[in-house]
Every structure is written in C-alpha cells, then in structure tokens.
Design a protein around this nucleic acid. Sequence first.
DNA 1: TTAAGTGCAAAGGCTTTGCGGTGCC
DNA 2: GGCACCGCAAAGCCTTTGCACTTAA
Lengths: 138, 138
Amino acid sequence: MEYIAWFTERCREHKLKVTPQRIAVYRHLQGNRQHPSTEQIFREVQREFPTMSLDTVNRTLLTFADIGIVDIVEGYGGPRRFDPDCSPHHHFHCLRCGRITDFRNRDFDRLEVPEKIARRCVVTGKRVSLTGICPECR
Amino acid sequence: MEYIAWFTERCREHKLKVTPQRIAVYRHLQGNRQHPSTEQIFREVQREFPTMSLDTVNRTLLTFADIGIVDIVEGYGGPRRFDPDCSPHHHFHCLRCGRITDFRNRDFDRLEVPEKIARRCVVTGKRVSLTGICPECR
DNA sequence: TTAAGTGCAAAGGCTTTGCGGTGCC
DNA sequence: GGCACCGCAAAGCCTTTGCACTTAA
C-alpha cells in the first residue's frame, strides 16, 4: 500500500488535489501490465465507485501522463493506452488482437540517441516498438 | 517514373486492380518524408483529381499497408499516418506539433529481437520510437 | 473560501461500413 | 461480363469541450 503515499507525494509536487477518483484510478493502474485503455480502467473502477464518469477517468489519465507518472503507449490504431511502468522497457504489439507485451533488453537500453537528433531535439522517451502476431493469434 | 512500373507489379502480385486513384495516391506518397495522414494525401491528390473521395484515399492507404508497400506509423494520438519508406529506419515524434523525423542507426538495426519474443511471436516490424520536442517547438 | 476537480451532455474528429453505380481485367 | 473498386452518406468509436455543481486544501 505504500504506493499511495508515493502517489500522494507526486500529486502534491504538482499541486494536484488528491481526490478519491484519482486514487482509485491510480490504484487500478498501478501494477497493471495490460496497458489498459481508458475504457478498461473505467470498467474496473466503476465496480467500486459507480458514480464515476468515463470522462473523469480519461482526464485523470491524461493528467497522470502530464506529470509523468504514467506513459501514453505508442499505438497502431484503437483507443489510447496507458502504462504505469515508466522505467525503460519495450513493447511488442500484436496487430491482430491488440495485446501489448513488455520486454526488456539491456542492449537496446544502452544505445545512445543519435547525435543528429540529440543535438537538436529534447528527447523525453525512447522505446523499441515491435509489431507482429502474438502466440495466441497465430 | 519507374516507380509506377514497380507499383503496378506489386498490385498485380496481389491481384489488385491498377486504378487511376491508386496510382495517384501512390504517386503522392512515394518519396514523401512527411509521414502524411489520409487527409493530407487527400488534399494533394484532390487538386488534380477533384472527384476523388477522402474515403477512397483512406481505403487505398489501408490496402497499401496490407500488401506491405507502405507502413502505418506508430502514433501518439491524432490521425493515422503513413510511411512509404519500408526500409529499416526510426522515428522521432514531436509531441507538441506532431512532426515525425526519420533517422537511421546501424546499431539499432543490428540488435536482434530478444529470444523471449522471437521464439513465440511472428515479428514483422521493429522500430525505435523517440518522443520529445523538436527544434521548431522548443 | 476558492480554485481545482467532477459529472453530464453535446460536439468534434477520424475511421469504418453499407450500398448502388462504375470501370478495370 | 464479372468482380473489384469507387463515391457517397451514415453510423460508429473515441476524445474533447463547456458548463454548473462539488470538494479538497
């Protein structure tokens, strides 16, 4: 449960109010490896919080992305998806079912952003995106 | 102009009819480094082909993606974007203006897909996706 | 107290679908 | 001539926006 303290701290840092809705959204996101969409988070949160609107979930997730406690996942169509794991890792996207699988790879992580880009741009994210067909869909 | 012969060949290969609309779309896509959206291609093509519908452009682009002569670019919101360059290269996405800049990097290209993924999935695409702010937007 | 946050509802943007007419092979 | 393709229009999906009410600080 100590993630709640951590979460509260991040909100305070960014002068965000710690509302029950925000806590509920973060609780369902935290530890979730499914890269859920707004809709999916909404359905889960709604079970124990029936008055919450989809719209609030959506705005909450965007706010979380703004303050850097979740990532917006690169996508290939379909609804926007979120990732509570902001540490360096990479994604495999199944183009048939939409499933996103995490993987880690030190060699990828170690590669530097090319000079050509680093010199001119502010780079805030770096990720390898693999696409294809997952075992379940073959 | 020899790309038209090449394009025609790819269509034949996949039993697609070579229509004026398809040729027009491919002509505007070919060599385009802007990763255009359906809308952008539509506006260009429309100038010399005023009866063409946005819808046809969209379906045409999806068909091209199906047969592998264009890539659908990984995205962070906004309309779907297409890339006629199917050779190995990578993208920097400006999160403010949406511009996508190509870059190439041999070291990235050389890295193997991790065993864990390669063993289980059919991997058809591999790309590094950088995000941040471009020089014009800083 | 009050600025930020929430819920609702409507609007907006983009994509997909269905269908009758058209034209490439 | 037949089937794939096109254009149009409507529907669908998801996201964004505006506004009045509520609430955390």
